[in-house]
Design a protein around this nucleic acid. Structure first.
Lengths: 250, 250
DNA sequence: TTGACTTATATCCATTTTGCATCTTAGTTA
DNA sequence: TAACTAAGATGCAAAATGGATATAAGTCAA
């Protein structure tokens, strides 16, 4: 049977289709540590567990469009602010039992936002909480990622995540690590103007390792993506650092 | 409205869901050049154009399972042979107008197979053709990828691809290029035993550039993934090269 | 049997990249 | 004005890389 035969014989009502959702890993920084936005589930299944914000994909919107809608409706982003967040598709999860209610395939997205926007979303939306991410392994290779409540600085009890959201979270961190060095994802977590130290802190927080300062500085500056603003950081009790802007050369 | 409210109010019959398919980029080598398996469409829409083999995702199979089924049913792979192919999810395409018949979201997969398996699939399945890939740009960055019929060695007229399959193909090549250096994808295109020259040929074909021989050899051997078999290639009129096996150390 | 021929494999060297220690500079604070 | 802190600069050794060249191991023809 060819695809066409199949299509002509295909009765949308006769064959149940998997439901399709998008789930978003909304990543940002809290006091320099990587964090994600989570909502605590109030209903079964997985009541009490923490879930990534998501939504069903409507027939009249693209996957990217659905992700943007979640950003607006569930993370409280103004339409103009949505455009300023870095968004990318992560992976599509399709295990049969990933949701006990019905067959749901979900397209996972990674959204990155600067610290200020992250805090704003957190303040505006009542249902949202920030969970700090523990990145307990070194290197790019995967491993179980753990999320901790903001009120648990000792990291005593990891949050229990709903569905397969722990795997999605782990993949998000892994993707971030892999892209950190050759892409511009780190800048998506920083404000418009930032110091080289802030940039290095972001890299170190995501990689989970310390980096050599002169080598890091050299690599970043040699890449040609950083434009010095001429301004300097304020509020330090020591020599203030130069503020840079991110701009990819054409 | 929370996700749970939505779910409880959600009537599968009332809200049309997007249809979900998988499409496979079945990549292999033909005479040392990268090639993909395509089927020529006989029905509208896009009759006469060339399409990637694919299928609807059934409610009782995972996405990976659907991809494996396509490999068996449409590419003529024996169940045992399916396990030997490298498979990975590429990206999920969800543009509203990507299929004129109805809203179809497709999860694209990349499948890599050695030259022999590629030729076998081609011989067994009547509807399949091999299209040679032209990789007209250098580096990892994207660009339009062109496919040419096997009977068109001069590459005069590129094949017209159906739907958004040209974009899927381009992404597959781009992914291959990006992973070539740090992953084992190149070995998935080679037979069990191969020479360093063959390995370099695969790299050069996919990257579209010539590589320095001593440097390439040094990098590959230093990585520790190559085990010399002790055997040597046969059929040459000159010094035969050592045959290696791929084996990742634990 | 031998030498020409071809490609595999090894070696060498200059250049670039990287890791790391140390020094200097520019601010604040007492 | 001196102590202090972190920014930013400099210098150097080790490692990685690019590329030319030499040697080795086969086939093949005379």
């Amino acid at each position: 049977m060819t695809e066409d035969d199949f299509l002509r014989a295909y009765d949308p009502a006769a064959f149940p289709r998997p439901a399709l959702t998008v789930d978003l890993v909304l990543m940002g920084l809290r006091a320099g540590r990587p964090a994600v936005l989570l909502t605590q589930r109030t209903q079964h299944p997985h009541a009490g567990r923490w879930a990534l914000p998501g939504s069903f994909v409507r027939p009249d919107e693209t996957l990217d469009g659905a992700a943007e809608r979640v950003l607006r409706e569930k993370a409280g982003f103004a339409p103009a602010a949505v455009a300023d967040t870095h968004r990318e598709q992560l992976y599509t999860f399709g295990a049969l039992d990933r949701d006990p209610r019905m067959r749901i395939v979900t397209v996972a997205y990674l959204a990155l936002m600067p610290e200020a926007a992250f805090a704003r979303a957190l303040a505006q939306e009542a249902g949202l909480s920030a969970a700090l991410l523990a990145v307990p392994w070194a290197g790019e290779a995967g491993g179980p990622v753990a999320a901790f409540a903001a009120g648990d600085p000792d990291r005593a009890t990891p949050l229990r995540l709903a569905f397969d959201h722990a795997a999605i979270l782990a993949l998000a961190v892994q993707r971030m690590r892999g892209k950190l060095d050759y892409s511009d994802v780190a800048f998506a977590l920083l404000p418009e103007a930032f110091t080289l130290r802030q940039l290095q802190d972001v890299h170190e927080a995501i990689l989970g390792t310390a980096l050599n300062k002169p080598a890091f500085r050299r690599r970043m500056l040699d890449r040609g993506w950083l434009v010095p603003t001429g301004a300097r950081e304020a509020g330090t009790s020591f020599r203030p650092a130069e503020l840079y802007r991110f701009q990819k050369p054409l």
